[in-house]
């Protein structure tokens, strides 16, 4: 019985180190940070950066019509959009760093920014 437990000593070490590694990677790569600023892009240009800690409604007149962006209680959403699909409106509120809402027909996109830039598939 004693030799059996000795065999697994090195293995336990490997398993222990891998567990620490897994926890470490979860902590490093899976932290979701609440953003503080929203960047509004309009017709290919940055329209402006706005703090999320205010109540504000913005109206952008694009090709399709009027898009209304609403900032409230640290979150932001498309309140109204002239586009056909209404995907941007239906996605609702966003507040984590790196989250993004895009309205392609009206050329409006909003992205939540924080201290660090989060990765997402759109960057690629």
């Amino acid at each position: 019985m004693k030799s059996r437990s000795k065999i697994f000593l090195g293995d336990s070490l490997i398993i222990f180190i891998s567990l620490i590694f897994i926890i470490f990677t979860f902590k490093t790569f899976w932290h979701f940070e609440t953003g503080s600023v929203v960047q509004v892009n309009f017709q290919g240009k940055t329209y402006g950066n706005f703090s999320l800690f205010q109540n504000k409604e913005m109206s952008l007149i694009g090709k399709e019509g009027e898009s209304i962006i609403e900032i409230k209680e640290g979150r932001v959403r498309f309140a109204k959009s002239p586009c056909k699909n209404q995907y941007c409106v239906q996605q609702g509120w966003i507040h984590f760093t790196g989250q993004m809402l895009i309205c392609i027909p009206n050329e409006v996109s909003i992205e939540v920014l924080g201290k660090t830039k989060a990765y997402d598939s759109l960057n690629y």
Partner: peptide, 16 residues
């Protein structure tokens, strides 16, 4: 692109 780093925790958990 660096976005695949998101997958490291899942893949390492599965590997273990």
């Amino acid at each position: 692109h660096a976005s695949i780093y998101y997958l490291i925790p899942i893949y390492s958990a599965a590997a273990l």
